[in-house]
Design a protein around this nucleic acid. Structure first.
Length: 414
RNA sequence: GCGGGCUUAGCUCAGCUGGUUAGAGCGCACGGUUGUGGUCCGUGAGGUCACGGGUUCAAACCCCGUAGCUCGCCCCA
C-alpha cells in the first residue's frame, strides 16, 4: 500500500475523471453562454472577512469549515468555501455597478474542512452562475432555466427534480422567524437536541430536520405562507408562473431552507436520489442583501452553484479519449520519415501516436492499447514506392495509400 | 465534530477454530511470431497482509491505539 497519500478529502483527477469534469464544465459554459453568462475567474483565496461577513457568523461554513491561515505578510486569508462572495467582492472592487445587469459563469475549486463522504470532499469543484442587478423575477426564472437546461444537456435532468421555495423579503422572514421561535420554544422539551441548537442559530433550519419527532412538530408549526407580505407573495407567484410558462416542472417545498444568511425570496435545489445523502446537485437562490452587506451599493442578485463531482458521477455517457492513428516505422531506418509523417498528419488535425521503440509487433500492441483507430506502417518497401500500409484496427483490413493522399484518405478514420 | 462498517499484489477479491514457503482472476513484462494488434498458449515479475504497540511457542487472523476509505448524522455542491 502506498505510503504517500493525498491529503484527506482531496484526490487526483486522472484522465478518465478529468474528461468527465471537462465535459460538465464545457457543457455548462456553452449552455450558460446561450443565456448571456460570460466566464470569469476570481481568486481561490480571499481575505477572511470576505467570507466571514457574508456567510453569517453562525453558519457551519464559517464556524468549522473554513481553511483559514495567516500568510507571510501577516494577512489572514481563507481558501474560498463557495463562489458567490468572491464574485460580489469582484463587483465592488472593479466598480462594476456601473455596468449592471451582469451575468457571470465560473468554474473552479472550493475548499471546506469537512468529513469526507461520497460526493463530499475537502477540495471539490463547482460551476456556478450569478446574475447581478435585476430586482425582478425575470432574473430568477432565467437563472433557473439556465440550470435546468444545463442538467438537460448533460443528460441528467431526468434523474433530477427541482424543489423551490421562497424565504420572502427580510420583513416577512423576520416576522415568520419570530412566530416560529415562539412555537418551538413552547415545545422545547420534545425538540431534538440538534434542533434545540438550531433554535438559537438558525430556527428556519428546524423545518428541514430529518428527526422524526421534529417532523411531527414541524407539521403542526405555523406555515410560512401566512406570514409572507403581499410583495413576497407576488414575487414568488411570478417566479412560479414563469417556470410554468417555460414548461419547467418544480415542486414547492415549504421546508426548503438555505443555510447561508444572505438569501432572500427564491431558494431552490435540484436534487437526485442517486447520490445517497448528498442528493443536492445544484442549489442557489436570491441574495439581494449581499453586495450591500459587503459595503457596496445595494445590488440585487441571484445565482446557483453546482458540484462538478456530483454531476460527473451522474453522467451516463462517458466521454472517450480520442482515437489516434498509430504511425509505425518498421525499422530504425524509417524512424525519421515516420516522425515527419506524424507531424504532417498532426498539423492536418489527426491525433497521432508515434511508438517509442520496439519492433512492429510491440508497436502494434501499444497501438491497440491506445485504442488506435488505424495503424500506418512505413517500411523500406513502402518508402521506396511512396506509399503507406494502412491497417484498419477495427476490421483488420489493410490497404496501401500513396503518401501524398494520406490527409484526405485517412478522413474515414476520424 | 458524532456513530457504524471496512483496509491482503496495480485493480477486484479468497485466505477455515491463530500453525510452516500468503493465493486467484484481471492487468503488467517477456516469449510462441526479427513486417502486424485484438484471441489463444507458455513463462515471469509484483506483497513491510494500512501503520504502531500488545497477547501467544506461533498473528493476515485475537486485543489496544493511530491513519485512511466508506455509510449515516450535523451541514452542504
Amino acid at each position: 500500500m502506498a505510503s504517500l497519500q493525498p491529503a484527506r478529502g482531496t484526490h487526483d483527477l486522472l484522465p478518465d475523471d478529468f474528461r468527465r469534469h471537462s465535459r460538465v464544465i464545457d457543457i455548462a459554459r456553452e449552455t450558460a453562454g446561450l443565456y448571456g453568462f460570460a466566464q470569469i475567474a476570481t481568486p481561490i483565496f480571499e481575505f477572511t472577512e470576505v467570507f466571514q461577513r457574508t456567510l453569517g457568523d453562525t453558519s457551519d461554513i464559517v464556524t468549522k469549515e473554513m481553511y483559514t491561515f495567516i500568510d507571510k505578510g501577516g494577512e489572514q486569508v481563507t481558501l474560498r468555501p463557495e463562489g458567490t462572495a468572491g464574485v460580489a467582492r469582484a463587483l465592488i472592487s472593479n466598480g462594476l455597478s456601473q455596468h449592471l445587469p451582469l451575468k457571470y459563469f465560473y468554474a473552479g475549486p472550493m475548499f471546506r474542512y469537512e468529513r469526507p463522504q461520497k460526493g463530499r470532499l475537502r477540495q471539490f469543484h463547482q460551476i456556478g452562475v450569478e446574475l447581478l442587478g435585476v430586482p425582478g423575477p425575470q432574473a430568477d426564472i432565467e437563472v433557473l432555466a439556465t440550470g435546468q437546461q444545463i442538467l438537460e444537456a448533460l443528460g441528467i435532468w431526468r434523474h433530477t427534480r427541482l424543489e423551490l421555495n421562497t424565504l420572502g423579503d427580510p420583513e416577512s422572514r423576520d416576522a415568520y422567524r419570530a412566530v416560529l421561535v415562539e412555537y418551538f420554544q413552547d415545545h422545547l422539551d420534545t425538540l431534538s437536541k440538534d434542533s434545540q441548537e438550531r433554535l438559537h442559530r438558525n430556527p428556519l433550519r428546524i423545518l428541514d430536520s430529518k428527526d422524526e419527532g421534529d417532523r411531527t412538530l414541524v407539521a403542526g408549526a405555523p406555515a410560512f405562507g401566512a406570514y409572507l407580505n403581499q410583495h413576497s407573495q407576488d414575487f414568488f407567484g411570478r417566479v412560479t408562473e414563469g417556470l410554468t410558462a417555460l414548461g419547467i416542472p418544480y415542486t414547492h417545498n415549504p421546508r426548503l431552507v438555505r443555510g447561508l444568511d444572505y438569501y432572500t425570496h427564491t431558494a431552490f435545489e435540484f436534487v437526485t436520489e442517486a447520490l445517497g445523502a448528498q442528493g443536492t446537485v445544484m442549489a442557489g437562490g436570491r441574495y439581494d442583501g449581499l453586495v450591500g452587506m459587503m459595503g457596496g451599493p445595494e445590488t440585487p442578485g441571484i445565482g446557483w452553484a453546482a458540484g462538478i463531482e456530483r454531476l460527473a458521477m451522474l453522467l451516463t455517457e462517458v466521454p472517450q479519449a480520442p482515437r489516434p492513428i498509430a504511425v509505425i516505422p518498421v525499422g530504425s531506418a524509417e524512424e525519421a520519415a515516420a516522425m515527419r509523417l506524424a507531424q504532417r498528419l498532426r498539423k492536418a488535425g489527426y491525433p497521432v501516436e508515434l511508438g517509442y521503440g520496439g519492433n512492429v509487433g510491440k508497436r502494434m500492441k501499444r497501438a491497440n492499447k491506445l485504442n488506435a483507430r488505424a495503424a500506418l506502417l512505413l517500411g523500406e518497401a513502402e518508402l521506396a514506392r511512396e506509399i503507406a500500409t494502412v491497417r484498419d484496427l477495427d476490421s483488420g483490413e489493410q490497404v496501401e495509400i500513396p503518401l501524398s493522399q494520406l490527409e484526405d484518405r485517412l478522413s474515414i478514420f476520424r
